[in-house]
Each structure stands twice: as C-alpha cells, then as structure tokens.
Write a protein that binds this DNA or RNA. Structure first.
Length: 486
RNA sequence: GCCCUCAUCGUCUAGAGGCCUAGGACGUCAGCCUUUCAAGCUGAAGAUCAGGGGUUCGAAUCCCCUUGGGGGCACCA
C-alpha cells in the first residue's frame, strides 16, 4: 500500500448534526486535530447532514461552539453534505451505469418483515437481493409504478477484504457476509457510506481517524473505493469512550454533551488535556500537557486499542490543577460569568469588580470548578447570611462561653483602628490566651459568626475582605441568635 | 444468530520476551502541615497482568482455546 509520506496530511472531523457532541465525538475531533497539527497538515470540518429526519436544530452551532471552546481550529469548511447532493447523485449514476449498483424498489415494510423473519430463524439480517435480479418486465413495471427507488451497491459474491488499520493492524472480513447496502436513499440523499467516501476522495483526505464503531463498515468503504477506482485513505479506528455502564456513550448517560462540562465550570485546557489522555499516553508518568506539548508529542502509535471509561473524578482533579495554575486575573475573568449568573438574586448587579477581585484570591485554590465559585463566595456578597445557631458551638463550646467570647471580640474589633489582616490577627490571636480558648475554637466561632460557614477561606483574610461593617454587624447578629432561647 | 474487536489495580494507563517480587495518575484510607476548608507533602491499601493450554532457558509481553466486555449487521451516522 502506498504511503502518504510525500503528500500533506489531510484529516477531517465529520460529525452529523443529530445531537450535541459528546466526549467521544470531541475526542475523535481532538485526535484528528492533533494528528493534523503534529504533521503540519490540514484539519477539515465536514457536517454529515444527510439524514433529514434526525436533524436537530442548533446542533451544528453546538458542534462549532464546542470545537471553538477547546481551541480545535479547522482549516477548511465547514462543508455540508446536504449542499453537495448532485455530486453524490453523479457518482451513484456512474455506479449504476457500470452495473456496480442497482435500483431497489423494496418497501421499508417488506425489508422490515424480511429482517424480522431472518432474526426469528437466527439468520443474520441481510438484504435478499430481490431487486438485483428483476426481470425486464418487472423493472419496467416498477419504474412506472411511481415508487421512488433506492440505489444499492452490488456486493461481490465472495472473497475477503483485507483492511489495514493504523491502530488495529490487519483486519480481514468475508465479503460474502456483507449485503447489498443502500448508497442512495429514495429521497435522493446519499447514505453515510457513499457520501463519506466521495467527500474523503474529493477533499483529498489522507487519513481517516474515526471511532471504532466504524471498523465493521470499513470493508464496504474499501469496496466502494475499489468500484470507483479510487485510492483509499489510511484508516485508524480509535478506541471508544464508554459510559459508566460500559456501553457506548450516548445521551442516555446524562451530562455527556461537551458543552455541559463548560457549564459545570471546567476549563477548556483541562478538558483538552483530559480528553487527550483518554486513549493516548506519552509515557508512564506525564499527566499534564499544554496544547503545544500535546501537538508535539501526539502519535497514533501511542493510541491504545481498548475502550476507556470516562472518569469524572480525574477530570475534576485535573481541572483543579489548571484552576490553580492560571493567574489571578485570568481566574477572575473566567469566574465572573459564573458569579454573575449564579450568585443569589438578592446580590446587586452589576457586581462590584473591585470587590470581586479582592474575593477571588481567597477561593482560587479552593475551587474544583468555576461553577463552585459562587457557592464558595456567596457570603462575601450577601448582606444577610443564614445559618443554624448550633454552628456557633464549635467543638461543643458552651453557649455562655460563645456569647462571652463574641462580646469580647466585638469590643476589641470595634475599637480597632486599622482593618487589615495583620491588625485583625494582632487583635484576635492574643485572645486565645486571654480567654484560654484553642485557636481552633475561637477562630471557628468567629468564622461561623462572620461567614455563616464552618468551612471558609482563612479567617483574617475573610474578615479583612468582608470589611469592618459587615463583620461587626454579623457578630452582633450572632449574639442575638445566641441570646434567643433555642 | 453471525461478523469484527478488545482484555494490566475500582477508573485512566506504563509495559513492544529477561530492567516487573508489574510503574505512574485519579479515587480511597492514614499521617504531616494547619484557625476551618482546600491546596501541598509523606505513606498505605489496591492487579494470582480474565482463565487455561502451549512456544521459550525465561511471558503481562508471542501462538491457540475458553470466558467476559464492546462494536457492527438500517432508505442512522
């Protein structure tokens, strides 16, 4: 088989707009893109919209949007197969003329019945070739019947088809087991098999990297290339990404759409890194890769053969790595839309940018995702915080002690001249000794009083950011809560 | 039912005959750090390399069978 070392690498991502792209689809896009970029080739985007009935409104936009989000840029396209119908027709006619295909008038109902019977007899489903052997009279009758025919490919009766796969090696199929598949539907649209090979041919695609589920139809495609006298591209069938239940990833698996991950606050660079590692690895230790490193190292030889189950825990971990890695300004910029959208409605909009900038450093290393940020920081923005009074009794602290402690702290804070981290700590830390309280208890109490949380960013930083007024007001409120009978 | 394909810790994986008493990562657990939570650091548990046969001085690595998983067999892609 001829190698393509001389020619430029040209690969394509060819999704169908029948739904929103999920991790598996996008991983395929990513591998194609990485392959193209690694080899200095072209990445072409093609929309396979030949199924008019399954078309989903807005799907194309979501596909483009997903790719853009990850920075998977395309060099040509998007091309739409629905706009190239005459091209497919022409090729189908050629095949018809050369007697390599034939018209079939069988109704969907008949085919359905036929398949049903075949499965009952435990026979493999396969078209019985009735229309392949029509007499001249029957042909004329059917032509005049008004039934819109489909075009079927004339499968050679026997022989073997050897497929070279860059990942699987050599795979052979018995041609006799294949049936006369439809290449042109009765509505004039091509099927995937026809359209994709025609486009791959005319778009000069050198390598087809697609999901493993296509492996079994590769002999059909090769046969088509043969019938047309065209040189097929090289194939590489990528291992599938499975859902937690080990079955093919689909809408049934919930948050499988890539855009859902964006909404969940994952960073595109984390997503990209994570996806690359689903089926590909560089060595036995490297986990974190920049986009450039990915491009530099990507190789089909290091793509595995077995399907992978997507592990969200690891994605979250990786997202945390990236979240902490970006600089504060960047973090703030990315968190802002999440804050704006998800902070409680009583928080005044537009948000005070300067204040947001003060709050962000306190949560950057605590957030697992950008979507956590509003929840993690809401008490900074809210005027009134709500919490259960029992939360003030840190580690079983007595109510009277809590009241006394808060009162003393309040007095100290009210007379504090400067309200910053150092003066707060300078005032409050000595209290542990004065009151004979552990730092954990004292600061825990004040934390609950000022933030309404038992877990929050470091106390002095939080208080400094909250400001004197809010802190004092909240401590007073805590005292009120404590003085109320439980 | 038939065809294709895959098979290393729960998960992602390293491993291309001796470096493997199988390495890393996530997760889990424990400890350290510490005002809480994170983060970080240290450590532990976790894989009879699906099972069985070969080949070989030697096999996770090669071959065969079995089993299990996945995919395909549409006028869907």
């Amino acid at each position: 088989m001829k190698t393509n070392s001389e020619t430029q690498v040209r690969v394509r991502f060819a999704p169908s707009p029948t739904g929103y792209p999920h991790l598996g689809n996008i991983r395929t896009a990513l591998f194609n893109w990485l392959f193209a970029r690694h080899h200095g080739g072209k990445f072409i985007l093609r929309i396979e919209d030949t199924d008019t009935s399954r078309k989903v409104e807005g799907a194309v936009e979501t596909i483009l949007d997903s790719l853009r989000w990850l920075g998977i840029t395309w060099d040509e396209g998007p091309f739409f197969q629905s706009q190239r119908l005459s091209q497919y027709r022409e090729v189908a006619d050629k095949l018809l003329k050369e007697d390599k295909a034939y018209l079939c008038y069988c109704s969907p109902e008949r085919l359905e019945t036929m398949r049903h019977e075949q499965s009952e007899q435990k026979q493999p489903p396969k078209y019985d070739q009735r229309c392949r052997h029509l007499s001249q009279e029957e042909k004329t009758r059917l032509e005049n019947s008004g039934i819109a025919p489909v075009v079927r490919f004339k499968m050679p009766p026997e022989g073997e088809m050897l497929c070279h796969d860059m990942i699987r090696g050599e795979v052979t199929f018995k041609i006799g087991l294949l049936d006369d598949f439809v290449i042109l539907k009765s509505d004039g649209y091509p099927t995937y098999h026809l359209a994709s090979i025609i486009d791959d041919h005319f778009m000069n695609i050198t390598h087809v990297l697609r999901a493993d589920e296509w492996l079994s139809s590769t002999p059909k495609h090769l046969l088509l290339y043969q019938a047309l006298g065209w040189q097929p591209p090289q194939f590489a069938h990528l291992p599938m990404i499975l859902g937690p239940d080990r079955s093919k990833l689909s809408k049934r698996h919930g948050a499988a759409a890539l855009t859902d991950y964006r909404e969940q606050g994952f960073l595109p660079e984390a997503m990209l890194n994570f996806l690359a590692l689903l089926g590909w690895s560089l060595d036995d230790k490297t986990e974190i890769f920049s986009r450039e490193e990915l491009v530099k190292h990507f190789s089909l030889q290091r793509v595995g053969k077995s399907a992978a189950i997507f592990n969200k825990d690891k994605l979250e971990w990786m997202n945390g790595i990236y979240l902490r890695q970006i600089d504060l300004e960047d973090f703030t910029k990315r968190a802002l839309p999440f804050l704006d959208e998800r902070l409680p409605t009583e928080v005044k909009r537009p948000l005070d940018n300067d204040y947001v900038k003060q709050v962000m450093p306190l949560v950057q290393e605590r957030a697992k995702s950008l979507a956590d940020v509003p929840e993690l920081t809401s008490f900074f923005f809210l005027d009134d915080i709500e919490y259960d009074t029992s939360m003030l009794f840190v580690k079983g602290m007595e109510p009277q002690i809590a009241v006394q402690t808060l009162q003393i702290a309040l007095e100290k804070l009210e007379t504090l001249s400067a309200w910053d981290i150092n003066s707060l700590e300078g005032t409050l830390r000595p209290l542990t000794a004065d009151l004979d309280l552990s730092a954990s208890k004292l600061f825990g109490l004040l934390r609950t009083a000022t933030t309404g949380r038992t877990a929050a960013p470091p106390l002095f930083q939080s208080m400094a950011t909250l400001g004197r007024e809010k802190c004092i007001q909240r401590i007073k409120k805590a005292l009120q809560k404590l003085n109320r009978p439980l």
